[in-house]
Design a binder for these strands. Structure first.
Lengths: 230, 230
DNA sequence: GCCCCAGATCTGGCATATCAATTTAGTTAA
DNA sequence: TTAACTAAATTGATATGCCAGATCTGGGGC
């Protein structure tokens, strides 16, 4: 997942990003430049640069002269992330459905779908999540707007963190997801934009509803950004 | 537009961002940490931190041990930015149209619209662009997804840079924009999501088409990222 | 017991110095 | 003339030190 190469700062960035998304660094937790630096046997500088990048992607918040904190999970941000994903994927799916669509172009999508089914059979949660991401990424690729996928994905960190707090070992909603993906593929094959839109709508809407309940989980107490105290 | 407060690094960030968006620093231009630092009478550190943030928002590209360059204007990125704006604004407008919509909530939107008309009358290009941004921002606000606006806006730097290279002193498409905005307001007032979607579609589609021609401007030679040389 | 304030401590912000990779200029050989 | 090689200069990358502001702590006053 990480670039592998690059300077020390980038390796620190990858490390911290992973630790945050997998909630090994918990939301609200205080980080110390010096502490991280000495733990890794390097100086503060590359650590600081990594933290600046993380700050820029809203994964941490640097408070001057006070400390750097892992951002809390924000229900508002999650809701917005769903909104963004929904509308971008609808647009991408419509575009993909309307395109000339060489018959083989959907082959990759079907292949990913098969791998998803396989992951569900093997009950491999990690692979399932990965293949699921690949599936949606492929839709943007088909629409010729891969960059937009990056945008939608960036808005989705909170969802992944909430998921990882649950540490679900069984795959949730596996069969439904597979069924919904199959419907999306069918709509693309039929070159039916309206059907594709409906399929995406159902899929993302379901996701938002299901995961919305996740935020009421007791385990998230203190890890969630409260609505404005005004 | 800038925060006003904050440390030196943030003031450098605001300065450089403005210089880049207004193309006083031209696409492809090489920047030097040391040069900027001494010009501002500060050390390289805050300059570097600002550049890291700019790198994270794709306004510059830091090449290790080589140099930092203002990114070229990318037609691909611009097209994707239009795609993102189109679909997010359609979603937001539909949501705003469908909402309960207290009668006074649209008042702000009408007010901005009036200011836009005023700017067009006075032929104040800068104010026109500003009010235009406010207008679209307000739509996201009405939909309750202001964060999504930030996402859409971030993807739009290239458009603004291309605009500023033209340095148009007359307001382009002023009357059409005003007419299209009026139609959007009318659709929202009528609580008609389909009509709102159509209005946004027309507006953004028009924008993409008009500005698309802008990229063929001779003045942009060398400032645009060429399609993959493969 | 509670509140307030001063000093110690910790944090990030910035400056400075050194390093290594890269680019570039100069030079030499074909 | 040109191509290739070498060395100096430039750049970003990292380490380190110091500073100012924020936080924490503990003692004194109410």
């Amino acid at each position: 997942m990480d670039s592998g190469t690059g300077g020390v700062a980038f390796r620190v960035l990858d490390l911290l990003r992973d630790l945050i998304v997998t909630v090994q660094l918990r939301p609200g937790q205080r980080l110390s430049e010096l502490e991280i630096a000495s733990a890794l046997g390097i100086s503060k500088t590359p650590v600081r640069e990594a933290l600046i990048r993380l700050d820029e992607m809203d994964l941490v918040r640097i408070v001057p002269q006070s400390g750097t904190y892992v951002t809390l999970i924000s229900v508002q941000r999650y809701t917005t992330a769903c909104f963004i994903r929904l509308h971008l994927e609808v647009g991408a799916a419509r575009m993909a459905a309307a395109s000339a669509a060489p018959p083989h172009s959907l082959e990759k999508l079907r292949q990913i779908h098969d791998q998803l089914i396989d992951a569900e059979t093997r009950d491999d949660h990690s692979a399932f999540v990965s293949r699921d991401e690949d599936f949606h990424r492929e839709i943007f690729l088909l629409a010729g707007h891969l960059d937009a996928w990056v945008t939608g994905r960036r808005a989705q960190f909170d969802l992944n963190r909430a998921r990882n707090i649950r540490r679900e070992h069984r795959i949730p909603r596996g069969p439904e997801v597979i069924r919904q993906h199959a419907e999306i593929i069918a709509a693309l094959e039929a070159h039916d934009p309206d059907r594709a839109e409906a399929a995406i709508h159902a899929h993302i809407g379901d996701l938002e509803r299901q995961v919305g309940r996740l935020f009421t989980d007791n385990r998230l107490n203190g890890l969630i950004e409260l609505p404005k105290p005004n």
